[in-house]
Design a protein around this nucleic acid. Structure first.
Lengths: 336, 336
DNA sequence: GGAATGAAGGAAAGCGGTTTCCGTCGACTG
DNA sequence: CAGTCGACGGAAACCGCTTTCCTTCATTCC
């Protein structure tokens, strides 16, 4: 365990292998023209000495840091978190590392972080956030690859990758229609949220594709269980005939289930309920467990990382990419 | 917006200010002996050119990377996340950056990450995890400062900082005792979890400090709403007289509240319920909102960062540090 | 047999800062 | 007025690795 031995440099390896540092470098990196025997000798020496190249020195001379910045505009929460894990997963597998920055929605902090990341010579940037509204592009040298995830960039020439919210809502709507439900209500979050509007619009469009109108107007409110419970309860109390409720989030859906149960309606027998997000603590704890739309956020993060790696390698794929959500069917829509 | 101009180096600044690069460096870093006028001139030149020092070069010559590694043994979840935010907050305020690594409980991945972090010359390491069981120390050069957060290191000579679980449980117990409750039941997670045992033991100890025994044996189960509901229900069905339930987590507490309500008992009038964790989505959505123990995780993260920064600066503070949780009182223990 | 070719590996110049060491110059001392 | 000292700033080494030449030497070709 005596550790305080000077770290071994490539020149130590070179000496032990009886070559010059330059040659050692070539041997270890598989570049240059070297006899196989020499290469082996160097590798052996490196292994024996436990040589680990000095990352910073390497980065400095290569002109790349093998680091990307991950910037979230709001604290890592339910949405950014899985995205982040996906990014980390895809990056960490290689030799890239991820620098974490949380701007807390503060433009000043964002500027600060962008500056320091650029100064640190990151090879690329991933920007994410909780809302889905497009955001203004960041100001960085335009030689620096940037990928916007979840929250796209307003500039269509930038590289963005987002969840297909409308597609997800369509999936949900088609699911309940496929179950024979015809009186479909919609309860969702604040109308100021693009995600709420997009999802609701897609549901309405899908219904009208079948010549149907939603059961009552779309109910906008907040992203909470309380709102889901209230809205569902008032729906019933109003005497609205409804055999399915599509919710803008799992929290709302869980609240709706509670409201229905307390109004003595059975889920799914009387009313099918579908959520959105597949947030396990909500979807699984709900009684009954929720059928919901999984955003595939981790997948989103991985793909974002892949896009960024491509861009770093020179293959920029601009535009707004979408990934398809997936419907997870549980007992809130089809009986056990 | 024409960006493709070669980045400005310190020598550019030096030329513009009419000094040597070395002098420019001293001026910008406030070192060496320079006339105030010279210093100003350099600063002006730097500002005019928009000079940003090249982080890697700086790091290489200084022998410090201004980077710390944040390693979580399991994916960032409910516990590691706030810790991470606290760390990021405390680090990002300075000029430190945080490298993110998620080992997913895989020792191989952990080794891999440790290697790459060391190779990247991080200035320090923060280790965290979800469980509270002590873990084995990581193998890194012992000149590299390491702080264990949430999950302490088994080696008492290492620097660890954890939540005072027992203290938190005591807080909860004293709270219900202070409310005059005398028949206190305990429902908690799996007995295999140290956190579950520690909290339960502390409650029992506090009760017996008042000459009381818990109402029925401590009920160990799982960390889920379902278990909370089940345990509370069976408690009632068994005819156990109980006027307070202390739960090992907010999920359990929320389930307990549901169970009690469905057994037509009023919370808190008939039974006071206290949770643990102050996990907002559970504690606030619970009916009624939960009195619970806040772990102050973000604070924990910030303090961990502070400990690490001190250690990097040479002020190592070994040992197991604890931070005190805080009781948050809501309607599940005292009527509105 | 001499020139051309190519493989192998070394020397040295970066990468972009920081820092040590030293020379110069003006002021101050005796 | 010679000698000392401190303030100021420049030259160059250095951090550790990569890469571009360039030299050397063996081989091949006419």
């Amino acid at each position: 365990m005596r550790s305080e031995t000077r770290p071994v440099r490539i020149s130590d390896v070179a000496i032990r292998a009886g070559v010059s540092p330059g040659t050692a470098s070539k041997a270890l990196n598989g570049t240059g023209q070297l006899r196989a025997e020499t290469r082996d000798r160097v590798h052996r020496a490196a292994a024996e000495l436990g040589f680990r190249p000095h990352g910073l020195a390497r980065a400095l001379s290569l002109g790349r840091s093998f680091t990307v910045g991950l910037l979230t505009t709001d604290s890592f929460g339910r949405f950014s978190l899985p995205v982040m894990l996906g990014v980390e997963d895809a990056m960490g597998a290689g030799e890239m590392a991820v620098l974490l920055c949380d701007t807390r929605d503060d433009p000043l902090r964002e500027r600060h972080y962008l500056r320091t990341l650029v100064a640190r010579q990151v090879d690329g940037l991933i920007l994410t956030g909780r809302r889905t509204e497009p955001r203004v592009p960041v100001e960085v040298p335009n030689s620096l690859p940037v990928v916007y995830v979840f929250r796209p960039c307003a500039d269509p020439a930038a590289t963005s990758i987002v969840v297909d919210d409308a597609g997800g809502a369509r999936l949900a709507a088609e699911h309940v229609l496929g179950l024979g439900r015809r009186r479909v209500a919609v309860i969702t979050g604040p109308p100021s949220h693009l995600a709420a509007r997009t999802r609701a619009d897609a549901v309405v469009a899908t219904l009208s594709g079948q010549g149907l109108a939603p059961a009552g107007p779309v109910q906008f409110g907040e992203w909470s269980e309380r709102w889901g419970r209230l809205a569902a309860t008032s729906l019933i109390r109003r005497g609205e005939e409804v055999d399915a409720i599509l919710c803008g989030s799992d929290q709302i859906a869980r609240g709706a289930c509670d409201g229905l149960r307390e109004a003595d309606l059975r889920v799914p027998d009387d009313v099918a309920v579908v959520g959105f997000d597949n947030w396990d603590v909500m979807a699984l704890a709900c009684r009954p467990p929720l059928t919901t739309v999984d955003l595939e956020l981790q997948q989103l993060g991985r793909q974002a990382a892949a896009l960024l790696l491509d861009a770093i390698a020179g293959e920029v794929r601009p535009g707004r990419h979408q990934i398809a959500p997936r419907l997870v069917i549980r007992e809130s829509s089809v009986g056990a």
